[in-house]
């Protein structure tokens, strides 16, 4: 009897654990897929199909260290653009303007999930809650 109860509890825990995992995975996949479309429409012209950028004009999106260090600023860069701000990406200076993108917080979360998990980056899902929080703190 005791064994049965324990095994049922274990099974339930297992199911719970497993379903939680797939939920996260489903969220990630949904964000990532929609994000790739946002990327094509809003980012790809300048930053390239493979995030390679363009010479010294447009910074690449392949610098994982830069992306991690500036994680909280990335939503602000997208939403409000950049004006003559010096950024060091892949050890090279980039100084120019990036146009502000008229995107909703959910779209920013999706596109950031796509960028930070493509082109050799692997940073996991960027949630809409995190993006909204970061947007409130934009300078």
């Amino acid at each position: 009897m005791k064994l049965k109860v324990i095994s049922v509890i274990c099974l339930l825990l297992g199911v719970l654990f497993f379903s939680c995992q797939t939920d996260d995975e489903i969220t990630f996949k949904r964000y990532y897929t929609t994000g790739s479309i946002v990327y094509q429409n809003s980012c790809q012209n300048c930053h390239g199909k493979n995030g390679e950028g363009l010479s010294a004009l447009m910074p690449p999106l392949t610098d994982s260290v830069f992306l991690k260090a500036n994680k909280a600023s990335l939503p602000c860069f997208i939403k409000y653009g950049l004006k003559e701000k010096l950024l060091i990406v892949n050890k090279k200076p980039f100084e120019g303007n990036m146009p502000a993108m008229d995107l909703a917080p959910i779209e920013i979360a999706e596109v950031l999930t796509y960028i930070t998990n493509s082109f050799g980056n692997k940073m996991g899902v960027v949630t809409v809650q995190q993006v909204s929080y970061d947007l409130d703190k934009c300078k």
Partner: peptide, 15 residues
Amino acid sequence: TTCPSICPVMHRNML
């Protein structure tokens, strides 16, 4: 030079 849409693609290809 300040073209945000197709020029970067054009000049990536022109390169």
